[in-house]
């Protein structure tokens, strides 16, 4: 059998983004395990297609695999947005396990991928969605009146908590912070903020308890996937299943490496709301946001409540025994004396 190239499209160019490290690892492993039958060609900076069009580019055969965020295709993904609910879990590992459970067992969830002719290989997730800000945020009141870049459901959540949500185009994120158009960014993982140097201008990170609520994924073109021999398909799936484990240790190592520099150079702080504060946040935010989504799904003819419950069950199932340590936990361990 001849050598096969796999075309990978990337939205970003930033090498610091851990997701890219993972995807490169995935392909290195694939090359090794297939004895060099598969090699990947990477195309950065949306060279082959824009983020929102990646699914259709894969279906059409322009690209073989890609990394994307669910939010780019709200029309194609309705029920899958259940995985983007705030306040359900704080561990991307648990979220990822639950996603794969439902992807494999719930036909309605699966159908949204099949219809687009793409195959979910692995959730390549973001860690806890922090708020990065110019001034420390220590209590709910601190959020009031704060100008934050936000979007989608988490934006709605923060505006319920009194923040003013502004939409800033992604390329203007750094500028908007540098020039003080916003006081901070919501929904951003610590490593992503580090990669974009956002912590240089907004060094304070806080996790207010909205948890992980971003669903970013690594997917393959279904025509490409189906054209592969059975044993290769199995090999790819197996590798996909290893991604979450690999990320779990990888992220902890990454945070151990980058946090000291952020603290030393830019006086970064990492603060988690207490249990009571989290409960308070969720009391204000969650019932309404979940209900809105369920109502929206019902209107579209989908059993929103059932899917939400299924996801909650799956999260509950995978939570015990989870050994992931958040960036905040890593910080606490490294700086036990920090207030």
């Amino acid at each position: 059998q001849g050598k096969k190239h796999v075309f990978v499209n990337h939205t970003y160019s930033n090498d610091v983004l851990y997701d890219l490290v993972i995807i490169r690892w995935f392909y290195e492993e694939l090359e090794k395990r297939s004895n060099g039958r598969y090699t990947a060609k990477f195309y950065y900076n949306e060279a082959l297609t824009k983020a929102a069009d990646q699914g259709s580019a894969a279906a059409s055969g322009t690209i073989d695999s890609f990394f994307n965020s669910l939010g780019y295709n709200p029309t194609e993904f309705k029920l899958n947005r259940v995985f983007e609910h705030v306040g359900l879990t704080n561990s991307f590992y648990v979220q990822g396990k639950a996603i794969m459970d439902l992807y494999n067992s719930e036909p309605l969830i699966r159908q949204e991928w099949d219809k687009q002719d793409i195959v979910l290989i692995a959730p390549v997730l973001q860690t806890e969605m922090a708020i990065t800000s110019k001034k420390p945020i220590r209590k709910i009141e601190d959020l009031r009146g704060l100008k934050l870049r936000g979007y989608a459901q988490s934006g709605q959540a923060l505006s319920m908590l009194g923040s003013e949500i502004l939409t800033i185009a992604a390329p203007e994120r750094y500028d908007a912070l540098a020039k003080g158009v916003v006081d901070g960014m919501s929904g951003i993982a610590v490593d992503v903020a580090y990669g974009e140097r956002l912590h240089e201008m907004s060094p304070h990170f806080v996790d207010i308890g909205l948890g992980v609520y971003s669903f970013t994924y690594f997917a393959m073109s279904k025509p490409t996937f189906d054209s592969l021999p059975q044993e290769d398909q199995a090999m790819i799936k197996e590798l996909g299943a290893e991604v979450l484990e690999k990320m779990k240790t990888g992220f902890i190592d990454l945070y151990k490496t980058i946090i000291p520099g952020m603290v030393d150079k830019h006086k970064s702080t990492f603060y988690e709301f207490s249990e009571e504060q989290r409960a308070e946040v969720l009391k204000i935010v969650t019932p309404k946001i979940w209900e809105n989504w369920v109502a929206e799904m019902n209107k579209a003819g989908f059993p929103g409540e059932r899917i939400l419950n299924q996801y909650m069950e799956a999260v509950k199932k995978h939570a015990p025994g989870d050994t992931y340590k958040s960036a905040f936990a890593v910080y606490r361990e490294m700086y036990p004396d920090a207030a």
Partner: peptide
């Protein structure tokens, strides 16, 4: 796009695309 009733996120709300 019409058949799927395509929408897009606009800030914190959803609009018809």
């Amino acid at each position: 796009s019409f058949e799927r009733d395509e929408t897009m996120w606009a800030g914190v709300s959803v609009i018809l695309q």
